[in-house]
Design a protein around this nucleic acid. Structure first.
Lengths: 160, 160
DNA sequence: CAGAATTGTTTCGTGTACGAATATTTGTGT
DNA sequence: ACACAAATATTCGTACACGAAACAATTCTG
């Protein structure tokens, strides 16, 4: 018990470890998705967002998916290279680049088996409703402590 | 409410979003640490483990830190390149490579400001004790649902 | 004892993820 | 009108993270 930084060492460390395991499990799931369906979780999230709202821009998507612009750019690069997404310079504002999902993109989205969509929802869904609500509340609270400047509760509901 | 996979859509999505925010905050903290102290969180975790137990091996460390062997290898590569860690082939079993922290490694560990150690413990510590225990329990439970084959509770206590 | 299976490390390729720097366009203040 | 700030996308370098494959050494087995 010589670790510092936690009021109760064991609890904090166990939680941190559990967090690492969850993150890793999500990553492993994303790789499995990539092997079997040739697309990763971040790419799927991106496509999903574009399916629901056309003419997105990089910056807006980055905010929506909680990623930096450069990360978002890389993901869109790969999607564009495969013809799943189209970039088109905006006429009104030449700084902006509109992103639209292509027919192949929509096709691919529909072809991804439901069960492969995400493992979080499956694991999360296996908890009781009370546990789900409790956990979500605590996660949001913890996230707010990390990064106070965020829309955690009052966000517009059309943003996933 | 056309998303599938959640019994209550909003709760699951909010939790997932919060999880993404937490993960990102941890990453951002690691980068800040890198800028200011020239070392990242994974490297710090690795050094910390080596300080507590000398003559570790790559595989054992990977299990302990919940990383794949190849990831662990990369981290050790960077630490070794900076002279913070030493690789030495085992005499008994020539397959194994012992990892030991060097004097510079220990020095660096002690020079990292306490507050920079980790942001998780700070955010986590700002929750009430009851919340901490509740959250940890739920995280462990969720992690178990992802990846049932893990030592979440019964592990030997010398492994952090 | 020879070959097979196992254990352990390293290498390789790819995707994520970030910040800093750059370029281009748009907006603003004087 | 012109300089300067803000917005937007892109590029670059780096670390992390994984799986597959290559490689080396040990242990098991017929």
């Amino acid at each position: 018990m010589e670790q510092e930084g936690f009021s109760d060492v064991g609890v904090g460390v166990r939680g941190f470890q559990a967090l690492r395991r969850i993150v890793r499990a999500l990553d492993v799931h994303s790789r499995k998705l990539y092997r079997e369906c040739n697309i990763t979780s971040p790419q799927l999230l991106c496509l999903h967002s574009l399916e629901k709202q056309r003419d997105q821009t990089l910056s807006r998507m980055a905010v929506e998916l909680n990623l930096s612009v450069s990360t978002m750019n890389g993901i869109v690069d790969r999607l564009e290279a495969r013809g799943l997404v189209l970039r088109s310079r905006s006429e009104k504002d030449h700084r902006k680049v509109h992103l639209t999902i292509t027919a192949e993109g929509t096709l691919l989205l529909s072809s991804v088996p439901e069960l492969m969509r995400d493992s979080y929802s499956r694991a999360f869904g296996s908890l009781s409703v009370g546990e789900q609500e409790l956990l979500t509340g605590l996660l949001v609270k913890l996230a707010d402590r990390f990064d106070p400047v965020q829309r955690s509760t009052g966000g517009s509901p059309e943003i996933i």
